[in-house]
Each structure stands twice: as structure tokens, then as C-alpha cells.
Simulated scan of single mutants.
Amino acid sequence: MAVRAVVIEADGGSRGNPGPAGYGAVVRDPASGEVLVERSEAIGTATNNVAEYRGLIAGLEAAAELGAAEVEARMDSKLVVEQMCGRWQIKHPGLRPLAARAAVLVDRFDAVRFSWIPRERNRHADALANAAMDAAAGKPAKRAVEVEPPREVAARAATRNAGTDPATIKPSWEPRPSFTATRLILVRHGETEWTVQHRYAGRADVPLSDQGRAQARATAERVAELAPSVAAVVSSPLSRCTATAEAIADALGGLPVRRQDDWVECDFGDWDGKTFAEVREGWPGELDAWLASTRIAPPGGESFATVAERVDRAVAALREAYPGETVVVVSHVSPIKLALRDALAAGDAFLHRLYLDAAGISVLDMWPDGGVAVRSVNDTAHLAGR
């Protein structure tokens, strides 16, 4: 029978690092603590980290087989937790395929939260892993001793739309009053030299080209037509955005431009400034892993999952600060795509299928009850002939 939410406790280790290795994973009911599934396996000679990832993968596979929609994965491996959250780089090449495999599994669930727990709270999975290590070393396997199960309920992953659960919003074709919606006019910055050269442009502060400045002026005129009354103009702190935002603010009567770090582009790390072809040639494995999952970061960079967290925070802040008003946001490809993905309740494949032109405009409305309507995507009619 399918379950809505589960808790995974996973562990792994080796006798010698590397040495005889094994993993253990336990899947529990979050309310009662009842054990739903146990998994363990001896995996031959491997490192602690490889075994820990294998334990996580086994737990995620078991949760998927149970039909779970929401997962809290608990591990006493700080490294695995931080890497899966996108906060730490995956430097060891042997861990990247395992992290990518885990990330693909994570994407099968509606929500996944990773939590670090001390080893004493992970004794069941630890005992399973130790039994598997004994088996890998040729010792008789011992049955893991059950410990008192944790009774705390797994926290539900944060949902979009400032705390409103999208599942509770009833679909409707009926028109909503536009004056109650917070409207975001999302503008990608104008063209830069790197745009034309098809280079990854993350945190490098590349200025607008002459063409980009002309696009910014045209975009400013179009925004003024769309929204003569604007409460605020918000911008990524990078100059290609602030220059575009300042042109728009001037067209709206000299509004101040508010710089907001959460709208900055994804950090592409070692790929920043490289052409798409150079990245494909120099980092083929890393690029495939990155394209396969939003939880994988470029070497030295930031995952789309991490970008999505700050974009969610930024959207919620604007919704709270400007109820029923219009806000212009000047940002970059990745943050705008992620905002539109969530507004449309789309999957991650959306990120690779949507194209956003330089100086393109997208519009979305958000109502107090959590309803969302995407009015337009990548409007570029104002750039005709430019």
C-alpha cells in the first residue's frame, strides 16, 4: 500500500577506508516510527563515503517502491547531506556518479528533505551497515538489534507560494480580480558580449553591450506600457541587470532600483566565462550529471536546487511586501526559469525546454489564496528590429 510520507535512516562504512564495506537503510513511518523496509548489502572493497551514498540510494529506492511522495532522509554523514543539499562540492570523481544516481531518485518525489543526525540517533541503520561490513570481511553476519524508534513526525518540506499548499488550491477557469493579485514582471537583462558568444555567465560582472543597452531602453518602454503603476523595481546586483533596471525605473518616473542578492544568477563555478562547447569538451561527465539533476552543482559552483531555494524566498518576500501591487524584477535566465517552473507547477525538464531571450519579459500573477496565473513568457515583440 502506498504511503504519503516516510523517513529514511541510512548509513554505510568500511573496515579500513577503503576496505570491506557495506551499507544499511531503514524506512519508517514518520508518525509511529514503525519500520516499513530494511535494506543492507555488503559491497566488497570501498570507502566510507561510497558506502554511505549506497545506503542513501537503497533507502530512496525502497521509499519509491512504497509509493512515497515525501521523504526525510536522515544520515550521520555530514558530507553526503551537505553534498545532496548542494552546499558542498563533490570533489571526488568516484562519488559523482553516486550523487547523480541519488539525485535522479530524489527527483521522483514531490519533496525531499535531508537532515544530519548524530550517530547515536542512527543506530538501526548503523547496525545494519556493520553487519554488512562483517559479511564483506567474511565474518558471520549479525542481526541488527532494533533500538527504540524515533517518534517525531518528519517535517513537511516547505511548499511554494508563501506557505500555501498548492494541493489545497482548487482549479478554476473563473477569472480572478486582477487588483488583488501581486504581479511580477520578470525581465531578463539585456544582451552582453558573453550572450552572443554563448558563454556561461554566472557571477562574473559582464556589462551590457551597445545592443544590450538599446534592448534595455526598448524594454523600459514596453514595461511602462504594461504597467504604468509599479510599486518597486528590484534587480540582481550584477551590472547587466542593474543597468537594465535603471532604464526601466527611469521610464517609470525615476523609481529607485532595489538590489536583491537572491535574484543573482546561478554560480557556474569553474564554467563561468567558458563557452558551452568548452564545457562539453572539458567536463563531459560533470556536465551530464548537472543536466540530469537540479541537485548537482557545476565544479566550484551552485546547484539549481540551491538557486530555487533563494528564488522561492525572494518571490515570497515580494508577495508579502507588495500585496495587490506590481513589481518589476530584473534578473537572469536561471532565476527567472525557476520562478516560472514553480508558477506552472512544472517538472525540472521545463528548465531545459524553455528559452529566454535577452531582454525578454514574462508576467505572472499571485493571489492571496495561493492561486497563480502565468500571463506571458518571454515576450520579445518590443525588440523587433533591434
Rank of each mutant, 00 (worst) to 15 (best):
M1R: 13
M1F: 00
A2V: 06
A5C: 12
A5Y: 04
D11P: 10
G13V: 07
S14P: 02
A21K: 11
Y23V: 09
V27N: 02
A31Y: 05
S40N: 09
E41S: 14
E41W: 00
I43S: 09
I43T: 10
G44Y: 07
A46C: 13
T47F: 00
A51E: 03
E52N: 07
E52T: 05
L56M: 14
L56E: 03
G59Y: 06
E61T: 14
A62M: 00
A63F: 13
D76W: 01
V81F: 02
E82M: 12
C85Y: 00
C85W: 01
G86Q: 09
Q89E: 15
G94Y: 01
G94P: 00
L98Q: 04
R101Q: 15
D107H: 15
D107C: 10
F109G: 04
R119I: 12
N122K: 10
N122Q: 03
D126I: 08
A127M: 13
A132L: 14
M133L: 07
A135D: 10
A136F: 02
G138H: 03
P140M: 04
K142E: 15
E146M: 05
V147Y: 00
P149T: 01
P150T: 09
E152G: 11
V153T: 14
A154V: 11
N161P: 00
G163S: 11
P166V: 08
I169G: 03
K170R: 15
W173I: 11
V187I: 10
G190L: 13
T192W: 08
E193K: 11
T195K: 02
Y200M: 10
A201Y: 03
A201G: 12
R203A: 09
V206G: 01
D210V: 13
R213N: 00
R213A: 11
A214E: 14
Q215W: 04
Q215I: 14
Q215R: 06
A224D: 07
A227M: 01
A227L: 04
A232S: 11
A232H: 09
S239M: 05
T244Q: 09
E246Q: 15
A247T: 07
A247K: 04
G254T: 07
P256L: 04
V257C: 06
G269C: 10
E281Y: 12
W283N: 07
L287T: 07
S293V: 08
T306G: 09
T306Q: 13
V311Q: 03
R313T: 15
V315E: 12
V315N: 04
A317M: 09
Y322M: 00
P323C: 08
G324W: 01
V333P: 00
S334L: 04
I336R: 06
L338E: 07
A339P: 12
L344M: 12
A345Q: 15
D348C: 02
F350D: 05
L351D: 11
L354N: 05
Y355T: 14
I361F: 09
M366K: 00
W367R: 11
V374I: 06
S376L: 14
N378I: 13
N378R: 06
H382A: 02
